[in-house]
Amino acid sequence: MSWSETALVALVVLAVALVLAWRGASRLDRLHRKVAASRIALDAQLVRRASAAVELAASGALDPASAVLVADAAYAASDAGPVTSPAAALQMDGLGADRERAESGLTATLREVLGAPETADELLAGSSSEVVAALGDAWYRATLARRFHNEAVAQARRVRRLWYVRLLRLAGRAPMPRTVELDDVLPHALEPTAG
């Protein structure tokens, strides 16, 4: 094999490697954008759920003590730091420990207040049925948004673990995305198939 043939083979191998690296970097960039978009969508759904909880507390359907507990937990979740800009979403650090604790606290409070089947049935049958249905809808959408976000994070992590992605440092300086772990289990009475 002459030097020109060896150089040609080396150029072909280099070109193939560059194309594969470019495709891998593009895929990883799309996955990082998907994680950022899903985080923003999750934040919007959690804010919607907190707003629906405040509406339930203000509707007069709950006893005063429960209304205060629900409103306090909803305001704590709202004040814990929503994603306000795309730059904040690109940090890919989940929602943060404080926000996750506050959202889990809101879930626990709502489940405590609405957990008894007779209480939920009473609210669903009364004049506040629209408010409770809106809360159930917002809660369900937040649960789905969290699942979609965590799946997007899992996809990005799988790609980032590939040997050539690590070897060529295709992720650049982007941080490793984190999943959002919080308690978001709906009470049985608010599940879409239960009502």
Rank of each mutant, 00 (worst) to 15 (best):
D43C: 03
L46I: 10
E5K: 12
P86Q: 12
L135S: 08
L11A: 12
A52T: 08
A57T: 11
A87R: 10
R169E: 05
R147T: 13
R157I: 13
L124C: 07
Q45V: 13
A44L: 13
V47N: 00
L95C: 02
A102P: 07
S129P: 00
A25C: 03
A189C: 01
R158G: 13
V83F: 10
A108M: 04
V159C: 09
V16A: 15
G105M: 05
V35W: 09
S85K: 10
A57M: 11
A189M: 06
P64W: 14
L20E: 01
A145L: 07
T109L: 04
I40P: 00
S4P: 04
G115H: 02
R99A: 10
A74V: 13
L18E: 01
L162R: 09
S51P: 09
A102F: 04
A88P: 01
L11I: 05
S104T: 09
D43W: 07
G105V: 14
P187C: 08
E112P: 00
A71E: 15
L167S: 07
S129M: 11
L162F: 14
E5C: 12
R146F: 13
W139C: 03
L186W: 04
A77C: 14
S51D: 12
L95I: 13
P64A: 15
L110A: 11
L31Y: 09
D121W: 11
L106N: 10
L31M: 12
A15T: 11
G96T: 07
F148W: 09
S26R: 09
I40D: 00
A15M: 03
T107W: 05
L8A: 13
D137N: 06
P64N: 15
A17K: 07
L186M: 11
V68C: 01
A145N: 04
G195F: 06
L162E: 06
G81Q: 09
A77L: 12
G172P: 10
T143A: 14
T109E: 12
T119A: 10
S129Y: 02
A53T: 02
A116E: 09
A152V: 12
Q91I: 12
L56W: 02
